[in-house]
Design a protein around this nucleic acid. Structure first.
Length: 611
DNA sequence: CTAGGGTTAG
């Protein structure tokens, strides 16, 4: 005789009265109770969990019962139990019953908490004596990795091996993705190697993950070349892959290519979604191409693509950046009409828009509204308001905000500090800025790149040569910050000599891992017309195995041009194209110009000789 | 029945 677990629902949150009535109704039917759960589930609201004899009539007559559901939904509710032991206790009475693996797995798939999912897996293993599937392990692995429990993840992987459960492409994709996301690139590569050893074939998601990895390393050219490899091997990219690539092309500043992906998607039968458009929006905004962003937005509306919270937030931003504060304001206040509840980002963005438009009264009003209506305020809210007080030169009020946020347990971050330093520097209180900076360093707060830069600039402006020299010396021989960061700080502060010196030593020591530092040095040298150095850094970048992007190649081609080394430029251009590097139209025309110049020079020389 | 995508402050 089969027992079945079930769950009762109402569409709205069950009242205590309703719960009591359901409970009585079940008792009348001699139905044994499991757990009574209330209103803690957001979407569906289980009233009661129960066990019933599956031969009995379906429960439908009480009027309170919308439907009976699968056991997995019941188990989902049990899975909400906060304590691991409690969960164990709840499940152990069922160990003799025939709960199918499917139900357990279904429960697992909904479980987001890594400890509880581990408990479920253990329960399956130890108490229920099931053999968890690869899928079950994958789910737990995902949760464990999301919680950054690397050791446990390795343990799970070993456990799979011991139980002769072969990791599949999901297992490896999960491992590779999460390692990559956390910057553990060596781990990611070793998982990739293991995967290849296992003979697990790569698929769309694996390629997507590798693209993701390259993206994390800001190696967009590599991402692009993986994408073309993917297409060449006959895999059709899906919506997410396309959306990722819109971002990648955008980051590589290949805007035309990014935008044309929307068309490519449509022709391959994939309808671009809100994320496709908002990704495109984001890259235009990032590159200050606000009118392009506007045109994407109108295209999006023309295609009847629904708006969502993120898109609205981005558009409030765009309107603000285009000095269209009125439109930003209008969009913000019309969000609720299309059933989108503004979040803290929406409010923060509008605050900044008001600030930029010098609508200080509106900004302060909105800020007070947030406080009055108890809308979440975060560190960005405070930083934005402090910036506004900086604009109005009310440094005392900014000071007060700093205290206020600390009173509310909102931790100031380095942006808060550099905002304060800039404000004091601006109102001529440089001693105060310097003291503040010293205090920060003593307190052990991490001094990030821009904070350093802000301080270098403040010292320069104040003419505090002693302080400035000390700070620069510290960056030249960094002991508490990575040398990569030191290079970026010095470059950002326009200290080319110091930056170049540290960079060389760091490259020699193999300490430059990310392509971004190479790119930064190349553009810095280019800006200061040090073309020989541009080429030198480029060569070292290639030696380090990085794949250059279109913009960087543009700098190098021009550098060759300035040194009248057109042949080398031509070789590089050809080589890059052969390696599958997508070059922007700017770079193409640059090359044409260089070749044209060369031909012109040769012609002139021939004319000279013939005379 | 898994894994991968977009937004705010210096």
């Amino acid at each position: 005789m089969g027992w079945e677990l079930g769950c009762l629902y109402t569409a709205t949150a069950p009242s205590i009265l309703l719960r009591r009535r359901v409970s009585e109704s079940l008792k009348r039917r001699r139905i044994e109770f499991g757990v009574l759960k209330g209103d803690d589930l957001r979407r569906r609201k289980p009233v009661a969990l129960f066990l019933r004899d599956s031969d009995s009539a379906p429960l439908s007559s009480s009027g309170f019962i919308d439907r009976t559901v699968d056991m997995d939904e019941l188990l989902f509710a049990i899975g909400r139990t906060s304590e691991e032991e409690e969960l164990y206790a709840l499940l152990s009475p069922y160990k003799c019953r025939k709960l199918s693996v499917r139900f357990m797995v279904s429960l697992l798939s909904r479980e987001k908490d890594w400890q509880r999912s581990l408990a479920l897996l253990d329960w399956m293993n130890d108490i229920a004596r099931y053999d968890p599937s690869v899928y079950a392990y994958n789910v737990v692995l995902r949760n464990v990795l999301r919680a950054k429990q690397w050791e446990i993840a390795h343990g799970l992987f070993d456990e799979m091996r011991q139980r002769a459960i072969s990791p599949d492409r999901y297992t490896y994709s999960t491992l590779i993705t999460h390692s990559g996301k956390e910057g553990l690139f060596d781990d990611a590569l070793s998982w990739l190697q293991k995967m290849e050893e296992d003979g697990v074939p790569g698929d769309l998601v694996l390629y997507s993950n590798l693209i993701e990895l390259s993206r994390k390393l800001r190696d967009y050219s590599k991402a692009i070349s993986i994408f073309s490899k993917l297409k060449r091997s006959g895999i059709t990219p899906d919506l997410v892959a396309y959306n990722t690539m819109i971002n990648v092309f955008g980051k590589a500043r290949l805007f035309h290519e990014a935008r044309s992906l929307i068309g490519e998607m449509t022709t391959s039968g994939i309808i671009p979604d809100t994320v496709s458009y908002s990704t495109l929006l984001a890259i235009y905004v990032e590159n200050k191409k606000f009118t392009d962003a506007l045109s994407v937005f109108s295209e999006m509306r023309k295609m009847k693509c629904p708006l969502d919270l993120t898109t609205c937030n981005m558009m409030i931003d765009v309107y603000g950046l285009l000095d269209m504060a009125k439109e930003a304001d209008k969009l913000f206040w019309s969000m609720r009409k299309i059933e989108i509840e503004p979040n803290v980002i929406s409010y923060n963005t509008l605050l900044r828009v008001y600030g930029d438009a010098e609508l200080f009264g509106e900004a302060i009003h909105l800020f007070r509204l947030m406080q009055r209506k108890d809308i979440e305020q975060n560190v960005v809210t405070y930083n934005t308001m402090m910036m506004i007080y900086g604009k109005t030169m009310e440094h005392e009020k900014a000071d007060n905000l700093l205290r206020e946020m600390q009173g509310k347990k909102i931790e100031p971050n380095s942006i808060t500090y550099s905002t304060m330093i800039s404000i004091w520097s601006k109102v001529g209180k440089l001693d105060r800025a310097a003291m503040f900076f010293q205090k920060l360093r003593r307190s052990g707060v991490e001094i990030d790149q821009i904070l350093y830069q802000t301080m270098i600039v403040a010292y320069e402006k104040a003419g505090l040569v002693g302080h400035l020299k000390r700070l620069l010396a510290e960056l030249k021989f960094p002991d508490n910050i990575p040398r990569e960061s030191a290079v970026l700080v010095l470059a950002g502060a326009g200290r080319i000599e110091e930056a170049a010196w540290v960079f060389r030593r760091a490259v020699d020591g193999g300490e430059i891992k990310t392509i971004g530092v190479f790119k930064r040095m190349i553009s810095l040298f280019y800006r200061y017309r040090k073309y020989g150095n541009v080429i030198e850094v480029f060569d070292r970048m290639r030696e380090a195995g990085h794949f250059p992007d279109s913009k960087t190649i543009g700098f190098v081609l021009n550098a060759y041009g300035k040194r009248s080394e057109i042949d080398k430029a031509e070789n590089l251009f050809r080589e890059m194209q052969e390696e599958g590097c997508v070059l922007s139209s700017d770079v193409h025309s640059q090359m044409l110009n260089l070749v044209g110049m060369k031909k012109l020079t040769e012609k002139l020389q021939m004319n000279d000789e013939s005379q």
